[in-house]
């Protein structure tokens, strides 16, 4: 059991490391270049600032981090590793409070999870992975195909349901997402299902009418159970730049986002915006997506993430 857990942990760490290594090696190389010879002076700090910006931390967060480094270590001779460790420590400190796993309410039958996000962020794939995880924990899972907009979205979800061994509640002619979510909830409840994952259509957060549709879904779910949805997960594409701020803010205000899942971290990096998001919104990050496979969903670990981001070995 323990050995299993250890193996699973190193498994996802490897994947995270592999996924992040490309950016991190770039970032790490940059830092090494800067610090191999010099002491921590203005020019060095400026370059450091640039490196953080290039990792999508955003100009404000980047300068906050370098300012802190400057305050504490200015004019000191610092090796590249020392700088990296110090930065990783600072970043991990920011991320630690939001590295919180998704916990199901055992009393809720079902625990309703509403999954929201902009188009193409990876909601349906994430739902497939989550369903697989819950199934692995011996939970019964139902998926509600409330993406009534995108062509073939229902079938995409059906295929994930098959892979994960989860029942899919869908109607091919469904037009009203809220009505479908409501019916799925009723069914899941009648069947005593443990988890209901509600897939919604992707929507840009500045579309007032589409955001109102999400409000409506929540409203009707609450008619059956005032505590539902127990979780509302915002799926965020790691390649997203500073618009992630607007996404989190608006989805939080309208749907009461309880947690984030960050996808596509197997690309050439990013995810740097998470640092700024953690600082500003303090919303838990439950998991990260590191590939297209059903197992490619990992818990979010602050220190590992920060160290991997800066190219440090464990």
């Amino acid at each position: 059991m323990n050995a299993d857990a250890g193996e699973a942990k190193s498994g996802w760490l490897d994947r995270l490391g592999a996924g992040l290594s490309r950016t991190s090696s770039k970032l790490a190389q940059g830092i090494t270049d800067i610090f191999t010879r010099s002491r921590l002076d203005d020019e060095t700090l400026e370059k450091l600032d640039d490196l953080l910006i290039a990792a999508d931390l955003g100009p404000a967060t980047a300068s906050a981090l370098t300012a802190r480094l400057a305050r504490e270590r200015f004019d000191r001779d610092m090796g590249a590793d020392e700088v990296r460790a110090a930065l990783a420590g600072d970043i991990a400190e920011i991320l630690a409070p939001v590295a919180v796993p998704l916990i199901l309410d055992p009393l809720a039958k079902p625990h309703v999870i509403l999954v929201v996000g902009v188009n193409g962020s990876g909601k349906t794939t994430t739902i497939g992975k989550l369903a697989h995880q819950f199934r692995g924990q011996g939970k019964s899972v139902m998926l509600a195909a409330a993406d009534t907009f995108r062509a073939a979205a229902v079938n995409q979800l059906r295929l994930w349901g098959e892979r994960a061994g989860a029942e899919v509640y869908a109607r091919d002619d469904a037009r009203d997402a809220a009505a479908l979510a409501f019916d799925a909830f009723k069914r899941a409840r009648a069947e005593g299902t443990d988890v209901l994952l509600v897939d919604t259509a992707g929507r840009l957060q500045n579309k007032a009418d589409l955001m109102a549709e999400l409000e409506k879904i929540i409203r009707v779910l609450k008619k059956l159970d005032a505590a539902a949805p127990q979780s509302c997960l915002l799926v965020l594409d790691a390649t997203t730049g500073q618009n992630a701020h607007a996404q989190v803010e608006v989805f939080r205000d309208i749907t009461g986002v309880t947690g984030l899942i960050v996808t596509k971290l197997d690309g050439s990096a990013r995810g740097g915006v998470l640092v700024a998001l953690a600082k500003r919104f303090n919303i838990p990050v439950h998991a990260i997506g590191v590939g297209e496979g059903i197992d490619d969903l990992s818990p979010f670990e602050a220190e590992d993430f920060a160290r991997a981001l800066l190219g440090l070995t464990r």
Partner: peptide, 15 residues
Amino acid sequence: ADAMIGQDAVNVAKR
């Protein structure tokens, strides 16, 4: 390319 993409846009486009 998605208009929301961040700094990675250069790497993606270049590659």
